[in-house]
Simulated assay, not measured.
Amino acid sequence: MIILTQKQLNKENLLNQGVLLLMQQGYHGTGLKEILDAVNIPKGSFYNYFGSKENFAVEVIQHYINPYIEQLDNHLQNPYIDAHTALRRYFNGAIAELEKTNFKGGCLLGNLMGELGDSNEPCRIALQATLNRYRNLLATGLARAQEEGSVRIDRTATELADLLLNTWQGALLRMKIEKSAAPLRQCCDNLLNAFFKV
Rank of each mutant, 00 (worst) to 15 (best):
M1W: 10
I3K: 14
T5K: 03
Q6S: 12
Q8T: 01
Q8H: 01
N10F: 05
N10V: 04
E12Y: 08
L14A: 00
N16K: 12
N16P: 05
Q17R: 04
V19A: 08
L21P: 01
L22Y: 07
L22C: 06
Q24V: 08
Y27H: 05
Y27E: 03
Y27N: 01
Y27F: 14
L32V: 02
D37A: 14
K43Q: 15
F50Y: 03
F50S: 00
S52C: 06
S52P: 01
S52N: 05
K53T: 00
K53G: 00
E54W: 05
A57D: 05
H63E: 09
H63N: 12
N66G: 08
P67E: 07
P67D: 09
Y68N: 04
E70R: 10
Q71W: 11
L72F: 03
L72T: 00
D73S: 15
N74E: 13
L76Y: 05
N78V: 05
N78Q: 06
P79V: 01
Y80P: 02
D82Y: 09
A83Y: 10
T85A: 13
T85I: 10
T85Q: 13
T85F: 09
L87A: 07
L87I: 08
R89S: 10
R89F: 14
Y90P: 00
F91Y: 11
N92P: 02
I95L: 03
A96Y: 08
E97L: 13
E97I: 10
L98F: 10
E99Q: 09
K100L: 12
K104P: 06
G105Q: 03
C107M: 10
L108A: 07
N111C: 09
N111F: 09
M113K: 13
G114T: 07
E115Q: 02
G117R: 03
D118L: 12
S119I: 12
N120G: 07
N120V: 08
N120C: 13
E121S: 12
P122M: 07
P122L: 07
P122G: 05
C123A: 15
I125A: 13
A126T: 01
L127F: 05
L127I: 02
N132Q: 15
N136E: 15
G141A: 05
G141R: 00
G141K: 01
L142Y: 04
L142Q: 04
R144A: 11
A145Y: 08
G149P: 00
S150C: 10
V151I: 10
I153E: 15
D154V: 05
D154R: 02
R155Q: 15
T156I: 03
A157Y: 01
T158Y: 12
T158F: 14
L160T: 00
L160G: 03
D162E: 15
T167K: 06
T167Y: 08
Q169P: 03
Q169L: 15
R174H: 13
E178D: 14
K179N: 14
S180Q: 08
S180I: 05
P183M: 06
R185D: 11
Q186D: 14
C187I: 04
C188D: 10
C188Q: 14
D189Y: 12
L191N: 04
L191G: 06
L191R: 02
L192C: 07
N193E: 15
A194E: 15
F195K: 09
F196A: 03
